[in-house]
Write a protein that binds this DNA or RNA. Structure first.
Length: 417
DNA sequence: TCTGGGGTCCTAGGACCC
DNA sequence: TCTGGGGTCCTAGGACCC
């Protein structure tokens, strides 16, 4: 039998901020999102003050002041760096590791020797705290979903927790409120509570067919996982399927040119992220929103998907597409508060090398436009694309497009209006 | 004008996660 | 006045082909 460990950094961002400020130990600490908009991390002391996750900062300013809460703007470079250090310590314990998020990892064990597992868990805690300075909790169980539950126990006990027999499993499920199950969000929780399903134990006692019908295959998988049947294995593929850069602005934008400038930098950031994982994208999606919280203002929200002329991770190409997309979506008279660029259709870069574009320079724009004109003949929504593979031989391929896509850059100006 | 069915691909949107 | 950002998976339904 195999076992999963779930390793979770306690209050990760808050712990990071505390790392080099030992005088903050025992004091309430919160970390705020971009533009210091809302609370995205809290130390235990801040949680105890009743500051909820996602709380708008302006609503809690008084409490921050009165209770002496130490408030930080987020510093993702720091968190990313510390995360990498934590993960490299964990990797010493096993190569069978899935880095699930910035502050969590699963490790799969091919044995279930409880004492060895406990020793490993304690040693992880000791090493990560001593070498990196971040406190972690470790839960062990036969499946991923159960290891999540075990971790919740571990956090409460400030220790390592192992669910290794039927009695412990049932006890844990009975203890866990249905809304705290990993994979049960607000919508499902509401639905289940209406049926008097209150705990994880109630949930696993539902019939398979009801769960399948009402909560899709994922809900059923989750149920089986909680029953101790292996339905979710380690997922070690780390390449992203989509990459996003989105921001709320600190003020409302009313000019198209302002939006264009911001969005061009978003596209540039996406291109950098693509290159970092050595891949190209085939599609770029752009959205613009007004401020959804302002019910007193007219609302506008729109997105457009654009097929790139060829697989690319070029900042210049993506920024140019994004700028044109903004011009297509922009309507005078609204106050824009949020925009984003999401690239998808991601493929490994080695499958497609456009060598003539190896170095970016403005002349490539002209080259690409020419290529568009020459090769992208739209006929019956089918495009003929010319592309060059790694050996520099040109190949033609056909591609079907949805009506929402366009590769004709000038026509972007009418898409979405 | 009426009359099919099966398969695949694609997309929007909804649910979830940290 | 001020309200985050970055991801994943699944499904229904339409388009299209034979």
């Amino acid at each position: 039998m195999s076992m999963f460990a779930l390793i979770d950094c306690n209050n990760f961002y808050a712990s990071c901020e505390r790392l080099f400020r030992p005088h903050l130990n025992g004091k309430p600490v919160v970390v705020l999102s971009n533009n210091d908009g809302c609370v995205i991390a809290r130390s235990n002391e801040a949680k105890a003050l009743g500051i909820p996750m996602g709380a708008p900062a302006f609503e809690y300013e008084k409490i921050f002041l009165e209770q002496g809460v130490h408030v930080f703007s987020s510093n993702y470079a720091l968190y990313g760096d510390l995360s990498a250090r934590v993960m490299s310590v964990l990797q010493e314990f096993s190569p069978d590791i899935e880095i699930y998020s910035i502050d969590e990892a699963f490790i799969k064990y091919d044995h279930c020797d409880v004492e060895r597992l406990r020793a490993d868990g304690l040693e992880m805690r000791r090493r990560v705290f001593e070498w990196v300075g971040i406190p972690i909790s470790v839960g062990f169980a036969p499946t991923k979903a159960l290891s999540k539950v075990a971790k919740k126990f571990a956090t409460q006990l400030a220790n390592v927790h192992i669910i290794h027999n039927e009695e412990m499993r049932l006890k844990a499920l009975k203890w866990l409120p249905v809304e705290d199950i990993w994979g049960i969000g607000r919508q499902y929780a509401r639905k289940l509570q209406a049926l008097n399903i209150k705990t994880a134990l109630d949930y696993v006692q539902l019939s398979d067919s009801w769960v399948r019908r009402n909560m899709t295959i994922q809900g059923l998988r989750l149920k089986h996982d909680l029953e101790g049947k292996l339905t979710m294995d380690l997922d070690t593929v780390s390449d992203k399927k989509s990459i996003a850069t989105t921001r709320s602005f600190d003020k409302m934008y009313t000019e198209c040119s302002q939006l264009e400038e911001r969005v061009a930098t978003f596209a540039h950031t996406c291109a950098e992220k693509l290159r970092r994982q050595n891949s190209h994208c085939n599609m770029l999606m752009l959205f613009v929103h007004t401020n959804g919280h302002r019910k007193d203002l007219p609302q506008y929200s729109r997105n457009v998907v654009i097929k790139t002329p060829f697989p690319t991770s070029s900042s210049i190409v993506l920024a140019d597409i994004a700028r044109k997309a903004v011009r297509a979506l922009f309507i005078e008279g609204y106050q824009y508060k949020k925009a984003g660029v999401i690239v998808s259709g991601i493929v490994p870069a080695e499958n497609f090398q456009l060598n003539i574009f190896a170095n970016e320079s403005p002349k490539h724009i002209t080259l690409m436009k020419t290529m568009d004109k020459l090769n992208h003949t739209v006929a019956n929504k089918t495009l003929k694309l010319a592309s060059q593979d790694a050996s520099r031989t040109w190949k033609m391929r056909q591609e079907k497009l949805s009506p929402n896509y366009t590769t004709d850059w000038d026509s972007i100006l009418v898409v979405g209006k």
